[in-house]
Nucleic acid binder design. Structure first.
Lengths: 317, 317
DNA sequence: GCTGCGTCTGCTCAGATGAGCGAGTATCTT
DNA sequence: AAGATACTCGCTCATCTGAGCAGACGCAGC
């Protein structure tokens, strides 16, 4: 980084830098045109870079924190990690990013799996097009007061957009007892739909935390049940599958009352894309990813930062 | 320039661009680290450049207009062309640039030639160091009222800074008649100094225009003499040498009254650096350069632009 | 479903490039 | 003035890189 440089050298450096970086000429070309050796050209360019005459900016694309995404991906060994800036306005940005990701990742050979979930519904609402692939429903629906109807139709809506075959059913996610749940599972429509679960190659799912307000499942059960489940080590839930801090599916009494894919089936899906953010969910997301239930993650910068704070540092390469 | 791009691709592009442009990793390296082909890396980088994710700025160094310098150099086939921004504040900036250029260009094998000149005095005032080389005075001095003494000492000051041998003399530049001038030229001190002129390899000189106020020589002679000289086609003056619009030295009656190097001697100096600017001097500068009296030029942006307006366009390469 | 078209991917090979070396030269010290 | 030191320059050789090409894949029309 030679600070002292004569005006001739400076003018030369500028000319070389312009030709190389703006006009795209090769160093050999420049050397020939200016009558200097290609080594001199290379050294001038190095100096120009070192002393700030040439400035290169990488602009993070709008609506995406590429650097955090990459760090998160490396830290967890994720297939894809997409981080949108901020946290407050995360809801729609995350959904949009997830929809884009889905569109990018899906091939005509894939089979898409979808659970009932508010987050997933948001994602599907952002989809305008999809390959003509089969769509498989992964679990029953929870209809909350005030938004019955449309939101339980996530899978049908996705299937309509795709135009491919759909394997959907009408059934609640949680029953009052194991017997009712069993009966539903034996119902032809349910059984036929769930029979296609092993063919699913890509699923997009929300992640719930096992705390009040952290998951629709958690909120839907009694205080007593919630406590019982918590005492078995459950920290989170995905599409009706409960899992502990190690991301291991946990079978509890509640599991028997749920109409959804099994933990083993979830784990067998090759590419599970999780869409989740919020401070309350950090532990659950961390567990799901570490446990291998999730292969790709779409989240907010705040959540990603919190995850990285507890995650192993990225390797150096 | 593929505008549509999924988030994964975008994140990848960002990562690749960061590694390549900011960390300086080779494309092969990046390809290996990210598990993609080097061709993909190259294409991502091309796209990143094309769609503005990577932005490269060439910052013109402060106090120097590199682009104009280069254009001026090409247009006139100059060895060195240095253009400082603006025109108003040109005086000191030009002097500084010339001093820097001199320092950069001079080698211990050179012999420096200097005329009396206000511009050259400014340049020497900016010099703090010089190689230990001989310094040769090129012409007699004109002492203006109010600044006698120091300013005629240009050559001595330069020699003191250099620390090498000096070949200086005390004599006025213009005498009242040819006889007085001849006598002075025969004076031992003058003759000995001028005998070294053929050894001069680098000279730094001002350029005067043959209009009132355009040159100290022009201002020092009578109106009648000025008109006579003008009628012989003289447009400018350098260190006592008068020249016409083609840059050809002109011998007039005035020439015989001047104690200075001859036009032939001036032309024989391998590298004459001219320091000159101002709208009035454009014609004179143009003539001197085209005539081959000047090989390098230090000037202002306004003057350079005016010169370029009348000069042949730069060749394309 | 089959075929043509446009796009994307990775390959070959020639030319471009970087790391390190040794010679020549300027600068500093004694 | 002479030697030591630091610097710049251009070279060689191994590696990297770009242009163009061929095959694979997805898409639209019959």
């Amino acid at each position: 980084m030679n600070e002292r440089r004569g005006p001739t050298e400076t003018v030369l450096m500028d000319a070389v830098a312009r030709r190389h970086y703006l006009r795209g000429e090769s160093k050999v070309e420049i050397a020939g045109a200016l009558g200097i050796s290609r080594f001199k050209v290379a050294r001038l360019l190095d100096d120009a870079l070192a002393c700030g005459v040439v400035r290169i900016d990488i602009l993070s694309p709008p609506g995406l924190d590429a650097e955090l995404s990459e760090r998160l991906r490396r830290a967890y060994g994720l297939r894809y990690a997409i981080v949108v800036p901020g946290e407050a306005e995360g809801r729609s940005a995350v959904a949009q990013a997830a929809a884009d990701l889905l569109l990018e990742v899906l091939t005509p050979a894939d089979v898409l799996g979808l659970p009932w979930s508010r987050s997933v519904s948001d994602v599907v609402n952002r989809l305008t097009t999809l390959p003509a692939i089969p769509v498989v429903q992964l679990c029953g629906g929870l209809v909350l007061a005030g938004e019955e109807g449309s939101s339980s139709d996530v899978v049908r809506r996705a299937a309509r957009i795709a135009g491919g075959p759909n394997h959907v059913f009408y059934a609640p996610l949680i029953l009052d007892d194991a017997e009712s749940a069993g009966a539903l599972r034996r119902l032809a429509s349910v059984r036929d739909a769930l029979a296609h679960v092993p063919t699913v190659t890509v699923a997009i799912m929300g992640v719930g935390a096992w705390v009040p307000g952290g998951s629709t499942v958690c909120d839907a059960v009694s205080d007593r049940t919630r406590a019982e489940v918590a005492s078995t080590g459950v920290v989170g839930e995905m599409g009706g599958v409960l899992f502990d801090a190690g991301g291991r599916p946990v079978d509890s009494e509640l599991s028997a009352r749920i109409v959804a894919i099994t933990g083993a089936q979830l784990r067998a899906i090759p590419n599970v894309i999780a869409v989740a953010h919020g401070a309350a969910k950090v532990t659950a997301i961390d567990a799901a990813v570490r446990g291998g239930l999730v292969h790709s993650l779409v989240t907010t910068a705040a959540t990603a930062t919190a995850l990285l704070a507890g995650a192993p540092l990225p390797s150096t390469n």
